[in-house]
Design a protein around this nucleic acid. Structure first.
Lengths: 201, 201
DNA sequence: GGTAGCCTACCTACCAGTAGGTAGAGAGCG
DNA sequence: CGCTCTCTACCTACTGGTAGGTAGGCTACC
């Protein structure tokens, strides 16, 4: 019971870390089991298969993300750019604090594994639609410059997540740790800045 | 000789396709050999190891990319936004025509394999620096709105490449093929649009 | 209270399958 | 002939997953 819960949670923790680091096919169960401190069969006692473990990790991670979005949207509703900035900053902060989530999502987006097309797609779609509708409403009201709302969401997605997921590459380009506090703050302000100038009417 | 050259080129071709599709660890030599139409040992006659093959593929792909950049920059130099748009559109077109390159680069950026930090990093850095210098010059001259030039380059990188590399995810969000001609044109114009509004003084 | 039965968590030993890579022989050709 | 290319046959290492067993805690019944 107690040790079970602890172990299971620990496995999920370690697995998130490894899958985020090396992707699904780049991670082995032995690797995870070793880090947890048990043998592979013991790991498979808690999760019936590698894929089941991966699913659990993915669903867990996205549950956190959905929770954040709900919370961010539930807050004091503003209009036009201020609301966009509010959500943008909340998302950025979440990603900063969950770098494993970002990389996990990126792997998933690249691989387009079975999880994605099936469950994740249908989980993300409503979110995407909600964002689209908000942007279109604000554009119609003239509070934001007009763009294709879906394209705009994808632009934000790319601008924010690429930086955080591609840290290895960006490190070698910038010659500095892109995930350090100073650089993160710089990045956050930059993206906000660019989008504000592009969006404010 | 002839068949050797042909086979070697064919191997590189197929390997690019597979590595772009499933990444390094998700691709097997058998998979490549099968598609080429030879046995794995025959493949290993042309490239001493999987890693060597991967290196060759990566270097080949980036050689194409560097060639394009040189060409794009060599053209009739303009100033301010028009030059940015020119290069941006050239890059976008190149990526559209080389979707395998985009995904390969993305995978590399994520994995941050040994290739990246060592060779690719040092290959991309001068390019990055050149872009930075151009942007800073134009900003100093007041022909572009002021931003952190490096951050701006990374934003462009993310906005363009995410869309093209994450096609599987975006398909399920958009409910349409993001790599179809119509969608590509839409994306191209959107990114140009956003950046113009953000950059023109 | 002791003890029999069951359950959870973990182990070692093993399975079949597949990964990348090697050895060596045969074919075709200059 | 020698050289290049390809093959079959093989190797070792390791993959995800299974079989079977053990230690220890909880519950129930005498």
């Amino acid at each position: 019971m107690e040790s079970s819960q602890g172990t299971k949670a620990l496995i999920l923790d370690v697995a998130l870390d490894r899958f985020a680091e090396h992707g699904y096919s780049g991670t082995t169960l032995n690797e995870i089991a070793d880090k947890v401190g048990i043998r592979r069969p013991s790991l498979l006692h808690h999760f019936p298969s590698k894929e089941a473990l991966y699913r659990a990790v993915l669903l867990d991670a996205f549950a956190d993300w959905f929770a954040l979005v709900d919370e961010a949207v539930a807050g004091p509703q503003k209009r036009g750019w201020p609301q966009v900035e509010r959500v943008l900053r909340a998302a950025f902060l979440f990603f900063e604090e969950h770098p494993e989530f970002v990389r996990l999502a990126r792997w998933e987006a690249l691989e387009g594994g079975p999880m994605l097309s099936a469950e994740l797609g249908t989980m993300l779609q409503p979110l995407f639609e909600r964002g689209t509708e908000f942007l279109e409403r604000e554009m119609d009201a003239g509070r934001l410059r007009r763009y294709d709302a879906r394209q705009l969401l994808l632009t934000g997605y790319g601008a924010v997540l690429s930086y955080l997921s591609d840290a290895p590459l960006i490190t070698s380009l910038l010659g500095a740790d892109p995930l350090g506090p100073a650089m993160l703050a710089k990045r956050r302000d930059h993206v906000v800045d660019v989008l504000r100038n592009a969006l404010e009417p």
